[in-house]
Write a protein that binds this DNA or RNA. Structure first.
Lengths: 239, 239
DNA sequence: CGTCCGTTTGAGGATCATCAATGTCCGTGG
DNA sequence: CCACGGACATTGATGATCCTCAAACGGACG
């Protein structure tokens, strides 16, 4: 229970309070010992494309770390429409629950490799390693910022602008995986619509509009080439 | 709001990983020693109504805990419109930053009493007290769920439904402060509009509609009496 | 080569934003 | 105590945007 750590100074080791810093903390940043510890309590799991990982409302005993592939979390509303709350990329954490039950349903968009940790086990470990716990704080703060960005996005009313923001968002996440001006969109139009809170048709019209404006060019359904990055960013930031 | 169970010793005290539990963890749940420690590094600050507490983009050295009153956090968009990202109530934490700078502007809606803690100081304390840090994890998870709820809300297109959701949201937070069926709305219509991502006029029309439907009854501008709780909830949950 | 699923395109109706004017509340000062 | 001013809120009319329903199109895969 006593935090026993190389205990240099608190100074440099602690860069800033997570709420206030930490752009994207990944498991890679852990010390070997910490990573070792996490791996020892985690199990690697694979999901084929389209697999439901857990359902909203079921007891939430596990926490997940996306390692490879893309996961979506969503809720189905009484009206029958679906709202996607987030797309999770490698190194993202998911499994948020409330009162012991998952608040969203999680489903793989592509084949997924993830680490799965029992909440109780993890809690015990965290209670003994303040530094490790600190990384989780940072991760949560990161998620929070993402949720706020998304709320910002949803405030917009124009379809083209929303789509532009979405493309910028995807660009960030796929940056290291694709050539410079190509953005991969592994999810369907329906998924994009459910994420942006618009109808499938509106998304479709928005894509054609962006294409006709000469801002992007689709390479098949799941990839976009950005032709005019400046105007895309302007569209995305303008509101 | 709802009275929490008495805390047990460390074992059971860890009920679950914060991502998976923790409805509303407040500073009250800390042990006397922890509270003492927090208070020793925090300073109490007061703000009159309408005071800007910090601005988006400025270096974020402080973390705040609302003790009394209501705070709003927002961003002003290029177009000149304002988007309120959150209303903070007593026991809520605010001061989220990215790359060392505040991501939102914070301003008091009512006179506010808050505790202010330097991030570095807090970080040092957290690194030495895993249990305390745990409470922060829980708090962050709570904020995250709030942000997701709000994103859900923003997905709706109908003004009346959004307003209904907003009222339910306010009802939760003001539960212990007002009589059963009265909801206090300390913020202006403009603030509500900026929060819901709609025009001021739409909010106004929505309020009159709800009134004419016999669901609510306004008592001045800053308080609503709920006449038909069932229909209000139905409106809020529908879609 | 045909089917099926996802996507695109079209027409009509509903909702909201915008612009503009009127109305209400509240604090201030006479 | 009352009158006034200004900020806030409501109401109305118009136009733009998106959603819904419906049909045609396209690629993936057997």
């Amino acid at each position: 229970m006593t935090p026993r750590r190389p205990k240099a100074e608190l100074g440099p080791a602690i860069r800033a309070v997570p709420l206030l810093a930490a752009d994207n903390v990944t498991i890679q940043l852990l010390t070997p010992k910490q990573r070792q510890q996490l791996l020892s309590i985690a199990s690697k799991v694979h999901y084929p494309k389209g697999q439901v990982i857990y359902r909203r409302g079921t007891p939430g005993s596990w926490l997940f770390f996306c390692q490879e592939g893309i996961v979506k979390t969503y809720r189905d509303l009484p009206s029958g429409t679906r709202r996607i709350t987030a797309f999770l990329f490698p190194h993202d954490m998911f499994g948020l629950a409330e009162s012991g039950r998952y608040v969203n349903t999680a489903q793989s968009v592509t084949p997924v490799t993830a680490y799965r940790v029992a909440k109780d086990t993890l809690a015990a470990v965290l209670q003994q390693d303040a530094a490790l716990e600190y990384h989780f704080l940072a991760k949560l703060a990161h998620e929070l910022r993402g949720a706020q960005r998304r709320a910002m996005l949803l405030g917009r009313r124009d379809a083209a602008g929303r789509l532009a923001m979405f493309l910028m968002l995807m660009k960030r996440h796929g940056a290291e995986r694709t050539a410079g001006d190509i953005i991969r969109l592994p999810m369907s139009r329906s998924d994009i619509a459910a994420f942006l809170g618009q109808s499938l048709e509106s998304i479709s019209r928005a894509t054609t509009r962006l294409t006709k404006m000469g801002i992007v060019q689709f390479q098949g359904r799941n990839a976009v080439r950005v032709l005019d990055s400046a105007r895309l960013e302007e569209l995305a930031s303008n509101l």
